[in-house]
C-alpha cells in the first residue's frame, strides 16, 4: 500500500489537529473515568437506556481507548473516529430517551457532546489521508 505523504498535511494543520486531539482526549478521559468510578449521574443515565446497564463499562473502555489513541503520533485519526462514534451513540441516547435540556447536567453533557463531535470532525478531516483505502480517495 502506498504510504501517506505527510507533507500533505501542513504544519498549521498539524497544530490545529493536536489542539483538538488534546481537548477531545481530556473530555473523553474524564467521561470514561466517571463511568468507571460509578458516578451517580452516569449510572442513572445508563439505567434509563434499555439493556445498557452493563454496557457502561464497554463504552468507558472505548472512550479510554479513543483518548489514548488521540494522544499517539500515528493513530489519532482512529481515536477521533472512535470518539465520534461514541458521541453519535450519545446523540441517539439524548434524542430518543434522555432529552437535551431537562436539567442542568444534561444540558452540560449535550453541549460537551456537540463540542467533541465538532472537534472530532476537524481531526478526522485533517488526517483523512491516513485512513487506509478510503483515505486515498479524498
Amino acid at each position: 500500500m502506498k504510504n501517506v505523504n505527510f507533507k500533505d498535511i501542513s504544519s498549521k494543520e498539524v497544530v490545529v489537529s493536536w489542539i483538538c486531539q488534546i481537548i477531545i482526549a481530556v473530555v473523553l478521559a474524564k467521561a470514561s473515568l466517571s463511568k468507571f468510578m460509578d458516578d451517580e449521574m452516569t449510572i442513572l443515565v445508563f439505567k434509563t437506556l434499555k439493556g445498557m446497564e452493563s454496557t457502561r463499562f464497554v463504552i468507558a473502555t472505548i472512550e479510554a481507548l479513543a483518548a489514548f489513541l488521540l494522544l499517539t503520533k500515528t493513530l489519532p485519526h482512529y481515536g477521533a473516529l472512535l470518539g465520534l462514534g461514541t458521541m453519535m451513540g450519545a446523540f441517539i441516547a439524548h434524542s430518543t430517551v434522555l432529552g437535551f435540556t431537562s436539567n442542568k447536567e444534561l444540558m452540560m453533557m449535550s453541549i460537551l457532546m456537540l463540542f467533541v463531535t465538532a472537534l472530532s470532525f476537524v481531526v478526522i478531516w485533517i488526517n483523512r489521508k491516513r485512513f487506509p483505502f478510503i483515505g486515498q480517495t479524498f
Partner: peptide, 17 residues
Amino acid sequence: GYRFNFNFHFLTVILFF
C-alpha cells in the same frame, strides 16, 4: 435500538458511518 435494546445502536452508528 429504540424499541428493544439500546445496544443495537452500536450497529446503527457503524452503518451510519
